[in-house]
Design a binder for these strands. Structure first.
Length: 896
RNA sequence: GGGCGGAUAGCUCAAUUGGGAGAGCGCAGCCCUUACAAGGCUGAGGUCACAGGUUCGAUCCCUGUUCCGCCUACCA
């Protein structure tokens, strides 16, 4: 016997501990079973579990538990990401509190501090995943800075370099002045803001007049080296080649012609600032113009900014504008929306900045990645995301991979300081090596220094599906689990991560890193807003688990995880699904209560005298098993959840349990009781297994309370076989018959409900029906009397309506409930008339359709016949109700 | 600028090949009927955003419009 109510906390702790002790989540490196593998999208080591992780992990856990139970050698490989910039920021903040900064500490000491921090706090998100019930193979947990993974990073870097796919050079990159590092294009978040388009007059150097340029960033004029116009622009035909005097600095700059300039925009004249704008950079290269850096890495003005040196970039803008104003060189300023880039880690406005960085030449890698998806070596689900994927891949730009921070994989490049040999000089003293070199391999000098930069964190993440399995070593894990089965992630990191994993996997493993990519929705708050700390609308998954239990939380996430749509989340919904957990608990409790100790529970297959209800629910279960497996196979998690919800609550609890209650209560029918008990346990046990991937804790707990499992302490539901449709006997005839019984019950209940007759009122029912149905009803009259709460039931083929009876016309029967002296004739007439109206509405639609010759001649024959049959049924029903109304009206006249 | 998605009951969302629109929550009425009041039964509630088109027939397919959300882009 189990406790009256369900308290998740104790159960969750107990069973999770046991799962770990028994090693149920550990996959085998070599196995005769088929492999199934998911690598977790590694959360940031600095992070704590947010609701997006919870959804992501829940879906993965469902898949893994489902496959593990279905006989696969299932590996869910967990781990965390070192998250270079984010983690460095966190530790730097801590240092600041102590009045320190990383430069005071020095590189080595700083790195030590970060590792220490990681040791103390880095495990948080892992323990939170455990609270959720994640069945990861923790023995294989990885961290992107692990020795093995670092080796993979070096191997990849060196090989790409040797193939000419990695290069170093001076280019305009996105620079975060706060994080003090370069960022890739993806790491910049664009936001539209209202800004101004300023018109500035640049006087000619050798004659009167001026040329007006339009710019949103007036301060960058300090770095201008030219003004460009379109060569076809008639307005400026004569002035190309003339010299302007740059205001404020009085530098002489030429007017050049370049196709890039759009004559329609602004004034048609563009100031050219090669060191601070990617387009200008390209233009300067085309025209051999100099590059003047007017800012430092802090986004303060540099020596080259003349009198503005040392000013902050925004302050400088104000000063430049007011200085131009006083020189009367400032024209109109128009309202203009500007798409401003911000650092995705610290939200600081990024600066296009000229600097020396390392890049991956991505085009060749992208070619293969496109092909892999095109020929279905990788399936993206839902398919809609393929378009974005192709679009991004086809327009891919080189990837800036060097970061000017300390926490990360240091670039495996050394520079020879001496360059004593010709060979050494030829390649600029650059040494690129997997192993850390002692001396320069070309000239033998031991004065070598390593590149100061580290790699983009996403560089190591891109290797995750194979680096975690042991690559570059040829491990058993790698052979067994690569390519992995599916990647489950949110759409926000398709480009950051998914696309790059595909490129790297194809390049270094010669095969896609995963067969399927399941892209799930983003979780928003109940108003559809993105959750963020600054908005204060974040929901803490741990709090939800504490309040409602992990199972309810997981089931809620699953039920809302429809493909291709964001999830609006609120805790109220979790509460709703906690009721479902409670329902399962209580249904189990009821079943266990009804098992007598001595009773021998038999398998349903051995029992010959199953009741109609037994056979019906067994049949339904077979259907549910099939639907759930199919839904999971197609990643329709919400469908799987709703099928289970519907079955357990409404079919099993509302119908079946109510139907077997009388049988269980009878002492004189041991066979019937025994069949019912067997059926109950069969349904319960299989349902628990079906539900287990969705709600692992409660199913485990209840499964052990089932008599047949009580002695098997070593066992766990998580390693039992996942149900297959053939586990439950099918019986179409039972389904047909049960529909008739249910229809009778619903008919009587409707009368009771609509006429507000209290359940305490004893009713009698008369059912008029045809021959075949009569027998079915008679054989199962007990269900009707119990569930519809009627004492006497008379069933016959020519029963006529008693005088003062309420009626319900069903497809295969007419039900009369005599209400002598109780029936409010007017109310009943009204009720029946309303029903006619309702039927008539749909009937008239059908009539219209059927009287349309085109429909009858052109529509498929089955459809026409189907509609005709439906129509006839409606008309018959209306007639019968009409008759009943007439009889009531006659009666009323007599009484009156 | 380009692309994608959404608009269905008061709320949140389903509806897989175009053929009488569903669920959960909420609401109303009746009920503590020996698992569960975190429950049961019954019911009300929809011009499927708008306008055209294809079709015998459109919530579904096509075109356009409006509103909302997202992704993406070097118009200074």
């Amino acid at each position: 016997m189990i406790e009256k109510s369900y308290s998740p906390k104790d159960i969750e702790e107990k069973w999770y501990r046991l799962w770990l002790e028994k090693g149920y989540f550990q996959a085998e490196s070599k196995s005769s079973k088929p492999s199934y593998c998911i690598v977790i999208p590694p959360p940031n080591v600095t992070g704590s579990l947010h609701i997006g992780h919870a959804l992501d992990a829940t879906l993965q856990d469902i898949l893994i538990r489902w496959k593990r139970m279905s006989g696969f050698n299932a590996l869910w490989l967990p781990g965390t990401d070192h998250a270079g910039i984010a983690t460095q920021n966190v530790v730097e903040k801590d240092l600041k509190k102590e009045g320190l900064d990383r430069h005071k500490l020095g590189r080595d000491e700083f790195i030590r501090r970060v590792w220490k921090w990681k040791g103390e706090y880095g495990g948080r998100i892992i323990s939170q995943l455990k609270r959720l019930g994640a069945s990861c193979d923790w023995s294989r947990e990885r961290f992107t800075l692990d020795e093995g993974l670092s080796k993979a990073v070096r191997e990849v870097f060196v090989r790409l370099y040797e193939e000419g796919l990695i290069y170093r050079g001076d280019y305009i990159i996105n620079w975060c002045p706060r994080c003090h590092t370069a960022l890739s294009d993806l790491e910049v978040e664009h936001e539209e803001i209202k800004g101004k388009l300023y018109h500035i007059k640049y006087p000619f150097a050798n004659e009167k007049g001026y040329l007006t340029v339009a710019t949103t960033r007036p301060e960058t004029m300090l770095g201008d080296v030219a003004v460009a116009v379109n060569p076809d622009d008639e307005r400026y035909k004569g002035i190309v080649g003339k010299v302007l005097r740059l205001p404020l600095l009085n530098r002489e700059i030429p007017v050049i012609a370049d196709e890039f300039v759009d004559p329609e925009f602004g004034t048609g004249a563009v100031k050219v600032t090669p060191a601070h704008d990617p387009n200008d950079f390209e233009m300067a290269r085309r025209h051999n113009l100099p590059f003047i850096k007017i800012m430092t890495g802090d986004a303060k003005m540099s020596d080259d900014a003349g009198p503005y040196k040392g000013q902050d970039r925004f302050k400088c803008r104000e000063n430049v504008l007011s200085d131009l104003q006083s020189l009367e060189l400032l024209g109109d300023a128009k309202e203009h929306t500007i798409n401003l880039g911000h650092c995705y880690r610290c939200k600081t406005v990024v600066e296009p900045y000229l600097s020396k960085q390392w890049f991956v030449k991505t085009k060749p890698l992208a070619q293969e990645a496109i092909k892999a998806v095109k020929d279905k070596r990788i399936n993206i689900i839902p398919e809609g995301w393929e378009n974005s994927y192709f679009d991004w891949m086809e327009n891919i730009k080189d990837w800036c991979i060097s970061r000017q921070i300390w926490w990360g994989h240091r670039i495996p490049v050394w520079y020879c300081q001496d360059m004593q040999s010709e060979e050494c000089k030829n390649h600029g003293g650059i040494i690129v090596s997997i192993e850390t070199p002692e001396k320069c391999p070309s000239c033998g000098s031991n004065k070598i220094t390593q590149d100061e930069d580290v790699l983009d964190t996403w560089f190591s993440s891109a290797l995750w599906p194979f680096s975690t399995l042991g690559w570059p070593a040829e491990t058993d894990d790698l052979k067994t689990f690569y390519p992995t089965s599916v990647l489950v992630t949110g759409f926000d990191i398709i480009f950051f991560w998914v696309a790059r994993m595909i490129m790297m996997g194809l390049k270094f493993m010669g095969d896609a890193p995963f067969r399927d990519v399941y892209i799930h929705a983003l979780i928003r708050d109940s108003h559809g807003q993105k959750m963020s700390k600054s908005k204060g609308n974040v929901v803490d998954p741990l709090e939800i688990i504490d309040t409602y239990g992990a199972d309810a939380f997981r089931f809620t996430l699953t039920a809302f995880a429809a493909q291709g749509r964001d999830i609006k989340f609120s805790v109220d919904r979790v509460e709703g699904y906690r009721h479902f957990i409670n329902k399962i608990w209580n249904a189990t409790r009821f079943i266990l209560m009804n098992i007598k100790d001595a009773e021998e529970v038999k398998s349903v297959k051995e029992i010959s005298c199953l009741s109609l209800a037994d056979r019906w629910i067994l049949n339904r279960l077979a259907g549910v098993i099939e639907e759930v497996n199919k839904a999971l196979d197609e990643y329709r998690f919400n469908d799987a959840a709703s099928v289970l919800y519907q079955f357990v609550w409404h079919e099993f609890c509302d119908w079946y349990l109510e139907m077997v209650k009388p049988t269980l209560a009878r002492d004189d029918d041991n066979k019937g009781r025994s069949a019912a008990i067997s059926t109950l346990l069969h349904i319960l046990e299989i349902s628990l297994r079906l539900l287990h991937p969705f709600m692992p804790f409660i199913t485990e707990k209840l499964w052990h309370d089932i008599p047949s499992q009580r002695d098997k302490e070593a066992d766990s539901i998580c390693v039992q076989r996942y149900p297959k449709p053939e586990d439950s006997p099918t019986d179409r005839d039972a389904e047909r018959k049960m529909n008739i019984i249910m229809d009778a019950i619903i008919g009587i209940r409707s009368i009771r409900g609509e006429l507000n007759l209290p359940p305490s009122l004893e009713l009698k029912a008369l059912i008029n029906t045809s021959d075949g149905t009569k027998d079915i009803l008679n054989e199962n009259v007990i269900y009707i009397s119990k569930l519809a709460k009627v004492k006497d039931i008379e069933i016959g083929e020519d029963i006529t309506k008693p005088q003062d009876a309420a009626t319900s016309v069903r497809p295969s029967m007419q039900i009369f409930v005599p209400l002598t002296g109780l029936l409010d004739m007017d109310a009943e007439i009204k009720r029946l008339e309303k029903e006619i109206l309702k039927i008539e509405e749909t009937a008239s639609q059908l009539r219209k359709k059927l009287s349309n010759r085109e429909f009858v001649s052109k529509a498929p024959k089955e459809v026409v016949e189907e509609n005709k049959a439906k129509y006839d049924d409606f008309i018959e029903k209306i007639h019968k109700i009409q008759e009943n109304i007439e009889k009531l009206k006659q009666l009323r006249r007599k009484d009156g």
